[in-house]
Design a protein around this nucleic acid. Structure first.
Lengths: 195, 195, 195, 195
DNA sequence: GATGAATGAGCTTTCATTCAT
DNA sequence: AATGAATGAAAGCTCATTCAT
């Protein structure tokens, strides 16, 4: 594939990501996306063979983006407590600066099973992201900071908590900005997971 | 309204709840629901004036159901730690016995903003449920068990965590049954929230 | 038929007349009419076997009402010119005091052929009204006031003109009240029809 | 828009015009129109965004057509009496050769207020036609042929009369062809409007 | 490769009419 | 005679996808 085509694909992914996240999967039409990228409807299908395929590529794109951020944190030589806080920071910063990413993850990927059923079974499409959380957890256990509990219980706490807060923000229920909760929340999480 | 009509309404709510939760809001059609209740399409509209209205009545129904369960716990004369565990138990038991309820909450209500925008602003439609979590938290603080932090941070932890676990279960990622996590998770939560 | 039933029938006719005239035939539903008369939908069908039948009875009711008014004028011992003016007066007064009648005539009866096709062929359902115009015209000719032209040409002038003015009024295009045109219009008509 | 698309639009307008005029607005369905033009239902909506919009474009189309005819007459150097007759001729000729146009005007446009309410307020959508009648009337007054009465009274006479005759013809009540009334009617009108 | 008109299945919703109570 | 829940055909409209140009 020419890199020109690759660039256009990413352009489409970005636009579709924003539209899906703000209007929902079913309320966003292919013509909506095409016109936001200023290409024709027919052309869209030269890049993505169906609306579902596009949706799946978007979640992989997000997983890669967040996975990279977490990888950088995991590679730093800092305490597990500091890593915990940095992860919360990255998550909330993304939710502030690129809200469509977290929204897509929470509202499109997690909620439209029928769309991602074939091709994203298990955690295939969010593999990079989950892997980094796993590394964070296992290293925390190895170096004696975290309790050696079931990974999924820890993962559920971490991701559920962060996702829940972003949801509350999205519903305009949270009275303060997300950043102001970083200390509280990373403290809660570390307190829950540590020995 | 006659109680007979009221009964039929609840029958429809039950059936629609299951269908929405398993197939998604947009992939479930009014004919789908009608035929699952064995009434005609037209008849549906004698009970609910639109598909959106039905969706809103369902979330209120769920909120009432869960709110009642939590109210019972809140009224018990037990420690905050025990209450915490009981709430986790109720939530997971519901997720096991009536999975459609939690699924609906997570996948339909939280994710289809455009549907609930008008009529369920803020937390109007999940009022009963949220209120009981608030009572749990405030009593925990009053009696000195819980730290007096921002309610929403605590709420996000509690609900995000539980929701996250059910999500993982739904994706068939959790290796064990939900119940087996009850101790771990209520311990994590209490540890995070307590003084 | 008991006179009680007859009274109810007229009540329904009155209500339906107003609804049809203001909202149109197809935009007025049987439930609309039933609830405006405070009876049940099913009951409606004990009085009128279908919506079309109701529509036809209404136009007959209007024809009878206007026919009676014209009959009174025709029986007066006054000049044709005076009769002309009185007819215009009656028509405009009806359009002011019972606008639904003229509106129904113009917008429902004349425009929904498919509804009145069977049962109101020709002028069967507006017989009483047309007959009186015919009497007015023939007496006017007999006594030498009016030219002996084709009746339908005269009828078209008279009724088309009056209907056209009420239409303009209904569209809120006429700058003044209908009554203020009575002299102009009866003058125009008499001028056109007289010898 | 390509001229090819424009041509198709006019084809649809022509077909829809005939169907609406003969069967009524509500009894003509989009599938009816689509199949009469031999295109798919979905395709219809690439040309007109809704049934109402189509209805409004049709009345503008008719107004333009008739407006042009009248403009030609107004530009001729003939007496007001001759103009009067020519207008009647054009109107009746249209009613004979393109009866759907006059029928649409009388039965669809004038009677389905709810359809034309938004977008055709006042006389916006029949502007061209009304303007020419206004020019005819004002020139007639200026050159001393017509009495200087209220324009709407004159307009109501002219249009109401002609419309009334076409109605009678449509109801198959008129014993003779419309053309045979041209002399009578233009005489009546001129007699009514002249000094 | 790009276009955008065409497709048609499928959606939500309406409503005249029926009929068991 | 009165009720109003039930019916189901049919409406307007949408939209992912195709394909001739």
């Amino acid at each position: 594939m020419t890199s020109k085509k690759q660039l256009k694909k990413e352009l489409i992914i970005q636009s579709a990501l924003e539209l899906f996240a703000s209007k929902g999967f079913y309320s966003t039409t292919i013509p909506d996306i095409a016109s936001s990228v200023k290409i024709s409807v027919g052309s869209m299908y030269n890049y993505f063979t169906s609306k579902d395929v596009l949706a799946k590529e978007i979640i992989k794109y997000i997983s890669l983006y967040l996975g990279n951020k977490l990888q950088n944190i995991n590679e730093e030589k800092i305490s597990t407590e500091e890593k915990t806080k940095k992860i919360v920071e990255v998550y909330f910063k993304t939710a502030s600066l690129k809200p469509e990413m977290i929204d897509y993850f929470l509202r499109i990927y997690l909620s439209n099973r029928e769309v991602f059923k074939n091709g994203c079974e298990g955690m295939i499409c969010v593999n990079e992201f989950v892997t980094e959380i796993m590394i964070y957890f296992e290293e925390g256990v190895r170096c004696g900071d975290l309790r050696d509990q079931d990974f999924f219980s820890a993962f559920g706490l971490f991701m559920g908590y962060l996702g829940g807060m972003v949801f509350l923000k999205g519903e305009e229920i949270l009275p303060k900005a997300l950043d102001t909760y970083i200390d509280d929340i990373s403290y809660n999480i570390y307190k829950a997971l540590s020995k």
